[in-house]
Simulated assay, not measured.
Amino acid sequence: MDRVYLTWWQVDRAVFSLAGEIRKHFRPDVVVGIARGGLVPAVMLSHILGDLELKVIDVKFYKDVEKKMERPVITIPLHGSLEGKRVLIVDDVSDTGKTLEVVIEDVKNAGASEVKVACLSMKPWTKVVPDFYVFRTDKWVVFPWEEFPVVVRE
């Protein structure tokens, strides 16, 4: 699968673009970041949108670029109640949509009154089209927090 590499500047612009759209259409009480890819944009959005409460959920689905497990598994569950809260779920990419389906169900089961999804990008074939996203691509997106320079030690 072809890859597209994003810079920190591109991510920054994308997150501010998301925040602008979210402000126009939704006022979340809580941001839920999906570890690991969704954590950076979730933290940024929680600050930009007014220092909102931030919760983390960890879901494993991918073993490698083209190797997925059969079904996503929650490995670190949400803590605390979301009873009556408006929740914004944040991830980096909506690829198959299966991870988002699992998280949306979990957030609703935790009592959220309203749930919206924000992703930096989405794939054309996803089962869950985010309420807020910046771009569509059929490429594997590599974010700056995923690639590290090799350190050579002598």
Rank of each mutant, 00 (worst) to 15 (best):
M69C: 08
D92E: 10
K55R: 12
S94A: 13
V65S: 13
I104G: 07
V93A: 02
G37W: 03
K67L: 15
S81R: 03
V43H: 12
T99Q: 02
Y62K: 09
D95G: 10
P28I: 12
V65F: 10
G37A: 11
V87L: 10
V90K: 00
Y62N: 08
D95N: 14
G97E: 14
D51F: 06
G37D: 00
D29P: 06
K85R: 13
G38V: 01
F26G: 03
G37M: 06
D91M: 08
V40I: 12
I57V: 15
E70P: 13
L100Y: 06
D95Y: 07
V73A: 07
I104H: 02
V90R: 00
E105C: 04
K55I: 12
L39I: 11
V56R: 08
E105H: 01
V93G: 05
E105A: 10
F26C: 09
T99K: 00
D92M: 01
L45Y: 01
L45D: 01
K85L: 05
K68L: 10
L54H: 08
E83R: 09
G37F: 05
V102S: 10
D58C: 11
S94E: 15
V73D: 09
P77A: 00
I74W: 01
H25K: 15
S46V: 09
K55W: 07
E66Q: 15
S94L: 15
L82H: 02
G37V: 05
E70G: 15
R36V: 05
I104M: 03
K55N: 07
R27V: 13
D29R: 05
D92A: 04
P28D: 11
E66W: 13
P28V: 13
V40T: 08
I22R: 00
F26T: 07
G97H: 13
V43C: 12
D95S: 15
V43D: 12
F26H: 07
R23F: 00
R71A: 11
K98L: 08
L82W: 06
V59H: 01
R36L: 04
V43L: 15
S81E: 01
D51H: 04
H79S: 08
A42T: 07
H25D: 10
H79F: 10
G97S: 13
G80D: 05
L39W: 01
H25G: 12
L88R: 00
V73E: 15
T96H: 05
K98S: 09
K85Y: 03
H79Y: 10
P72N: 00
V102Q: 09
T75H: 12
L39C: 03
R86N: 11
L54G: 03
P77Q: 02
V102T: 13
K63R: 12
D91C: 07
G84V: 03
L52I: 14
G38D: 02
Y62D: 04
P72L: 01
A35N: 04
K63V: 15
V93F: 10
G50H: 14
G84T: 04
Y62R: 14
D29V: 00
V40W: 04
T96W: 02
K24Y: 03
R23E: 13
T99N: 00
